[in-house]
């Protein structure tokens, strides 16, 4: 059997827990787009107790555990769930901020280009966004930054380190969103369904509306 460096590189990347997407690893992503290659990779991964999965939008491949009956695996999955979701609040605030900052008013999604300069310009022009940036940094435990510029730089570095952004170009101020955002979206959808977040929000909104109506009409409970 001849040595296939692309196969090796792809498998190594997957078993270290990374997500392969066109932004981070375009060659390996194209390799997995081929049905023969993907079968080969899946067959190999199955032998070490792993499977291959893909984000719902098809933009990212990642390895998953197969043996879910193992107690150790279940415990690890639970711990990983807590670790991942424990970091969500600042990420969701960041996503919400991106809707306000982006020219098209869309939240950051896979393959979007993010310019630190444009973000800084918009944030510095709004005290509300500066406050929100400060809250996000606080929740991400970024303490050393003193002003909006430093906070933004620290956040971009953290997002890059966590695999959400990849640096683009020589300036170091331009980034591209990876499929890590797609995976986050899939995870958020699952949790929303399980926790009934939308229904809870709608119920609460209906209660608030009734209270306001009662106040308006001078009725009290």
């Amino acid at each position: 059997m001849s040595f296939d460096p692309l196969f090796r590189g792809t498998v190594e990347q997957l078993i270290t827990g990374a997500i392969i997407c066109p932004v981070t690893e375009p060659e390996k992503f194209d390799y997995l787009a081929d049905s023969v290659s993907i079968d080969k990779v899946q067959h190999y991964l199955a032998q070490i107790g792993r499977g291959l999965s893909c984000t719902r939008d098809g933009n990212g491949y990642y390895a998953v555990a197969l043996d879910l009956d193992d107690k150790g695996t279940r415990a690890r999955i639970r711990n990983e769930f807590e670790r991942i979701t424990g970091q969500w609040e600042p990420l969701i605030r960041w996503l919400r901020m991106s809707q306000q900052v982006a020219a098209d008013k869309h939240p950051i999604a896979f393959n979007d280009t993010v310019s630190e300069g444009d973000w800084l310009k918009t944030i510095e022009a709004s005290s509300a966004l500066q406050e929100e940036l400060e809250i996000i940094c606080l929740k991400m435990q970024i303490k050393k930054a003193q002003d909006a510029r430093q906070r933004l730089r620290a956040l971009f570095e953290k997002l890059q380190k966590d695999g959400f952004l990849k640096s683009k170009g020589p300036s170091g101020a331009l980034f591209q969103a990876t499929a890590r955002w797609s995976l986050l979206k899939d995870q958020m959808e699952f949790v929303t369904q399980q926790e009934g977040i939308i229904a809870a929000n709608n119920a609460r909104a209906a209660e608030d509306h009734q209270e306001q109506e009662a106040l308006f009409h001078g009725r009290s409970e």
Binding site: L14, I15, T16, G17, A18, L45, G49, R50, G51, S53, T55, Y62, A63, V64, A65, L68, T73, R76, I77, R78, E80, F81, I84, L183, D186, Q187, F190, V191, Q194, E195
Partner: peptide
């Protein structure tokens, strides 16, 4: 919630990184 579902979602069952 992971214990309540019949099938665990793949987005929450990452393979342990080696």
């Amino acid at each position: 919630m992971l214990d309540r579902v019949q099938t665990l979602p793949q987005c929450f069952i990452p393979g342990e990184g080696m």
